[in-house]
Design a binder for these strands. Structure first.
Lengths: 316, 316
DNA sequence: TTGTAGGCGTTATCAG
DNA sequence: CTGATAACGCCTACAA
């Protein structure tokens, strides 16, 4: 591996000049800069991030903390992870995956990405001594990235109306968290604009729970109803039970999911769904976190990315 | 952060003695060792892995390389990743995720875990200058961890016979890779033991491809047939088309999947499947790779983990 | 068995 | 604007 010294020799300057060309190029005369850059090029020099980390008291490692149980969660974490990784790679950062909250501050890291945070988890955050960002909206002032949940369900609801479904029913997740409130708000607002009355069922985020609800209330559902669901899991359950009841999809009943990762592709018929730009969210989170680290913890704000409605086979 | 020096002062010894207590405890007298250990304890000392990395010319980072397209792959990678991460955490290692093969040697790492390798990829491996291990069986002498694919399909086939299905048909993946050959071999061997004639269809690893094959040949399938499938995706397609043809599962037709991650849980009826210990494989891969790094590249051999047959609703 | 000196590759600081 | 020096925290080699 070529080092700073090698480049310095090659360019006939001191190590410091080379270092400056890398970190503070404006402090070096253009002529010298060109020479040094050529030397770096010729020797294929890349700074040793470990040595940099040592002097800067950095680790070049961040932790990816998952507070949710990954087994029961949608497989979209893989996309978030790879997006996050892509973002980290630009700065030669690496990550450690942590599922046990007590392990967060164990070992060394420059910062944390925290996913799956619920209300009960927030107390812990203020005690963290390193910068962190959240995946998932919150209203406590913590930096985060999320889908624009409200707009997403507005899109879904409006689309259902455009397709001339007369009644729109929301099947939500029975959890008191901001993302769920936002999704419901998007649905409610859109209905109100059209002077329609919201009708909401809330179930645990499993397909069979959704099946149960459809089974129980099926007689009350009239034709031309569209179910706007807060997750693909729920949507899959709704579709399945509607089929079991002999209902025709999408002619008489529509179903719209939420997530757009994997499940929508293997279901039959294929789900119309709200697709979140998860990979991109991962990338955003990485750049946000790295920036926050570089700026010694300064706030990065909130980022809400626009989702996309994927039209497939469960809406007419 | 407390350093080696702090501990040394506290214990009234030199830094080296402390260092030795950590790395070569046998070279230190028991009495001193106790004193130093107490000092480390009192000061809550943890070695700075970055400084260690610098002197040892290590990075404490390994790369997780995915040569497969993660979008089209089973969501089991998430479990592999978390298992791998668990294994790395024991040694304070971090990882970088890489999907672009040309990026493998970019930046720094002490070694690589390579997944999704196909025949065409092997040429590249010999050029790698860092230790690596593979996820997925191969017969070229590279260290790997995988499910025992052959035993797995033996179990599946034998189980189908035990459940008194008279004909067992294998629906494989149309790919010329060791894992597929091993799965087929497990099936074929078991049939031959019972003097039955193997019948194999091969399709691309998508549910609709499996659907097509079932649709096309359905008339040729008699009652009491069990389909042993090389993946859950295929199994899901088989189930779906059998249902579409009006066949009764599991009474007249059985279906057994392979993978046991996620898909089997959301399908309806729930899949009987071969569950791979993926998390554990991830952990194994990590310890194997770390050991290989520690032993400067010495071979670690092949590890085939026993899978488990999960009996659910698609077999009688 | 224990300690001293030096160096890993980089950067901040201060002098020129 | 550029360079010499020291320091980050640890470990190897050698000396006592």
């Amino acid at each position: 591996m070529t080092t700073l010294s090698d480049v310095a020799k090659e360019a006939n300057v001191s190590k410091m000049t080379v270092s400056r060309v890398i970190n503070h190029p404006e402090q070096v005369t253009p002529e010298l800069r060109v020479i040094v850059e050529k030397a770096m090029e010729d020797l294929n020099y890349h700074p040793n991030s470990i040595a940099q980390a040592l002097v800067n008291n950095r680790t070049n490692v961040v932790k990816f903390v998952t507070l949710e149980d990954i087994d029961t969660t949608e497989p979209y974490y893989i996309n978030l992870l790879f997006g996050f990784a892509r973002g980290l790679n630009t700065k030669q950062y690496a990550m450690q995956l942590v599922t046990d909250p007590s392990q967060i501050e164990k070992g060394r890291a420059d910062g944390y990405l925290i996913t799956g945070a619920r209300n009960k988890d927030y107390d812990m955050f203020d005690k963290l001594d390193k910068p962190f960002v959240l995946f998932g909206e919150n209203h406590r002032g913590y930096d985060f990235v999320d889908t624009d949940n409200q707009t997403a369900e507005k899109m879904a609801t409006q689309y259902a109306l455009d397709r001339l479904y007369k009644r729109i029913i929301f099947i939500g997740i029975d959890i008191k968290e901001p993302f769920e409130y936002s999704r419901e708000a998007g649905y409610i607002n859109t209905l109100q604009q059209h002077q329609l009355i919201p009708q909401i069922y809330r179930v645990s985020n499993h397909s069979h729970a959704a099946q149960d609800v459809i089974h129980e209330h099926f007689k009350g559902f009239k034709k031309d109803t569209c179910f706007v669901c807060a997750s693909d899991r729920i949507a899959v359950g709704v579709v399945r039970q509607l089929q079991a009841e002999g209902a025709r999809i999408p002619e008489d009943f529509g179903v719209i999911g939420f997530d757009g990762v994997f499940l929508d592709q293997v279901s039959n018929p294929k789900l119309t769904t709200i697709k979140q730009p998860i990979f991109k969210m991962g990338e955003m989170l990485a750049s946000m976190l790295l920036q926050k680290i570089a700026q010694s913890g300064s706030p990065q704000g909130e980022v809400m990315l626009k989702p996309e409605l994927i039209r497939r086979e469960t809406t007419r």
